[in-house]
Design a protein around this nucleic acid. Sequence first.
DNA 1: AAAGTCTTTGTAAACGTTTACAAGAATAAC
DNA 2: GTTATTCTTGTAAACGTTTACAAAGACTTT
Lengths: 345, 345
Amino acid sequence: MAYDKENDRNVTIKDVAKRAEVSIATVSRILNGKDRVSPLLTERVLLAAKELQYQPNDVARALKIKESRSIGLIIPDIENPFFPALVRGVQDAAKIHNYAVILCNTDGKTDEEKKYIQFLYSKRVDGIAFTESVDNKKNIALLDSLGIPVVLLDRRVEGMKASGVSTDNRLGAFIATKHLIDQGKRRIAFISGSPKLSSGADRASGYQDALLHYSIQYDKKLAFIGSFTYESGYKAVENLLLSRHQFDAIFASNDIMAIGAIECLNQYGIRVPEDVAVVGFDDIRLATWYKPLLTTIRQPVYEMGQYAIKLLIEHITGERSSPYEKIFVPELMIRQSSGGLEEAK
Amino acid sequence: MAYDKENDRNVTIKDVAKRAEVSIATVSRILNGKDRVSPLLTERVLLAAKELQYQPNDVARALKIKESRSIGLIIPDIENPFFPALVRGVQDAAKIHNYAVILCNTDGKTDEEKKYIQFLYSKRVDGIAFTESVDNKKNIALLDSLGIPVVLLDRRVEGMKASGVSTDNRLGAFIATKHLIDQGKRRIAFISGSPKLSSGADRASGYQDALLHYSIQYDKKLAFIGSFTYESGYKAVENLLLSRHQFDAIFASNDIMAIGAIECLNQYGIRVPEDVAVVGFDDIRLATWYKPLLTTIRQPVYEMGQYAIKLLIEHITGERSSPYEKIFVPELMIRQSSGGLEEAK
DNA sequence: AAAGTCTTTGTAAACGTTTACAAGAATAAC
DNA sequence: GTTATTCTTGTAAACGTTTACAAAGACTTT
């Protein structure tokens, strides 16, 4: 019943062979350019293929050679401003090697992740790039059991036999906090991301490292648990305000929480950076469009996506066999929200 | 040489058949649930499948039934803030029907589009959702010739036999311009998108319609050609300023151009909305985070993506045979940048 | 009890490729 | 001129499914 299937004028290798008066093996050989074949036949076959507008059928090919030239990309949500650049990096790298990328949005739900992993396996993708959203051993184990190359994006997972790419989150958080301290701030509030994620936990560690290093007392009452969403940033500050604890700065574990935080501060008539300095994390594009311009820690997201696929493909082709952990180094982008800019002038 | 291919413990329908002591046909029938088969065998097969952790091979299936359960999605650039919501809509709709979506970024290059169309055809996708970036008859013709269902996103293309989904751009532009006129503005500058795109051309028409309707002289000197990018919005205003023509409002054909325009105005010390009112188009998420909050014309982008895939799948399954044109209606979102908010108070 | 009908199962071909193997032609070696 | 070697091509099997067709078994119907 499907569209156009009757007058399906699909031309196969067989048709080409017939027209060029050779065997299908010969056609295949010429088209793949692996084996040598005489110039005479080559020309005839190429001509026939062009005349018939032959387009190889990759699914038959995939079945035979057990290689689909496609990879799965699992992320929580493409609408989250962090991901478009990552996805673009992935896609550009995949394109170079002629891999198709199948996009999957899980909204951070463990069972969606599982469904997609199985879905992708049924499609016999050659590899999977995975950004897990909650530290879930089960899905990691599932991935491991598939016997398919996997690379983990933006997350560290202990004891997994897969490669990974991430940013040094602990260092980034350290730098961010240090920057605030350098501005003379001493009562620095912290909004964490999901603490179950390595990225969330590591940023919390970096924050504490910096306090410790500069002999500032860590104050539990200034630390809030967020979830990497705008709303959680807003809420955190609202709670902070309600608690009436003094603070002169905020380090939020990502940019959208930082923006949520600033929006809340504004709502209560508190000025940024004059009254409270704010630093975010990620350096999404919005950070340079938002007012005040957001001081933040830059992750090279596009490059991370690219590198992940480079690694994945190396595993697929067998060029690389043992897991490798690529860690990018974060960079402080000083803008308005931390008040660091005026100082610099 | 590929990863793990030797100790590939892939279990096939044959293995299941052997273990359950039935023929492979029976296994297939049970797994697909089409034909009736006795409860006894059903149970045995299901058990065997579970014990062996059988996962069907969709590529073999695709080859046999000529249906890959995957669709291609061609867009210019996922990093353009307009697209994430669209893509998410597409993906969510595809998921419901168990289709994989293969993402392709073309950067608006015609030859990239062509390459991807052929690439997707080789992969034998069941359908293609296409957002063309320059009105290129050749690629449309190519798509037509494939004999594969196609739906056009966000673009009208004359005389194509494919379905399409878009927003009434002309109406949207009319409403935007009218809103500015309602604010008492009479010298309204216009920044177009690519005029070769229907979305670009239609918005220009809507702008002119409104001027005509309210008996305002159309002034060529106030109209600028942009390309839907931040930079082109910025440039347009710079040129406008240099030309020293008076203006009291700007209608930009999309939000990022509007933001580019405002940034430029700010640079020159011109206040928005006090000195110049600005309206954009699209209502990307950034419009509500940017300062001033951007007055704009909302397109239901997510829904458009969803609807496109619904349509596409109807064509694939044969439920729908003749092309259908779905046109969403745009909505004015009054915020700060047009000064419309104070008035309303 | 024989003949007919319906239901359940199996056999084998097909989908469009790639590739091991064999065969034949051409060239080289003696 | 015979034999060995290399090169080019074809034949056929295989990849993992689905499905047309046939066969056999279980019921009806007379």
